[in-house]
Amino acid sequence: MATLEIRDLHVMVETKEGDKPILRGVDLTINSGQTHAIMGPNGSGKSTLAAAIMGHPRYTVTAGTIRLDGADVLEMSVDERARAGLFLAMQYPVEVAGVSVANFLRTAKTAVAGQAPALRTWGKEVKTAMDNLRIDAAFAERSVNEGFSGGEKKRHEILQLELLKPKFAILDETDSGLDIDALRVVSEGVNRALENTDVGVLLITHYTRILRYINPDYVHVFVDGRIAEEGGPELAERLETEGYVRYLGVGATMN
């Protein structure tokens, strides 16, 4: 069993107007096989948390720790974090012109596994995973994310999750922008990963809809750079009806 442990994490971002603190003391522990949902208003810092865990250079950790089975994640470069078992399905996946999906997947798999995958089984594995996610075989030869629709990008992220088999996966709004069928297909992919690999999942979402497919063990309410409340799946239901009003100052509005 693996553990990802975040303690008192403070993160800031450099802006033209100066340093801007975004995360203000995040505490979160995830174990293998668990699913944690994070919900919270726009701009509360959810993507920042995801990016900081993965080591995005724009975000500076000013205090706190992130440990993966005791190892200091903050000391690792981005690629080292991935090889240590962290994975981030991005809210806005990036286009990489001229690099085919097939080449990208093979390169990534080789990098995280430390050796090239066996040619024969790998081809089959990719094809099955693509079929499961209803990704047309033609995508293998297309440039990574180039000209993909929003939903196709998200499915491509989950394809990587299934193939790279990380210890912990952070899914940043993977459900946003998906149609009803795609939401189900993507959720099935996450559930397959949970079943097959015992991955621990941190699921960032705005909607309880995805939580009908992927059952969270814990729900965290994220407000103003920290976790304001924690609970079980019932917390998500309550947020659905009440919104975030109770966590925000009087007169605050949301959209």
């Binding site: 250079p57 981005v78 690629d79 991935a82 991005m90 996946p93 990036v94 990208f104």
Partner: peptide, 10 residues
């Protein structure tokens, strides 16, 4: 960042 987050060195 995207490529490195998939384990690929810089």
């Amino acid at each position: 960042f995207y490529l490195m987050s998939r384990g690929v060195p810089e």
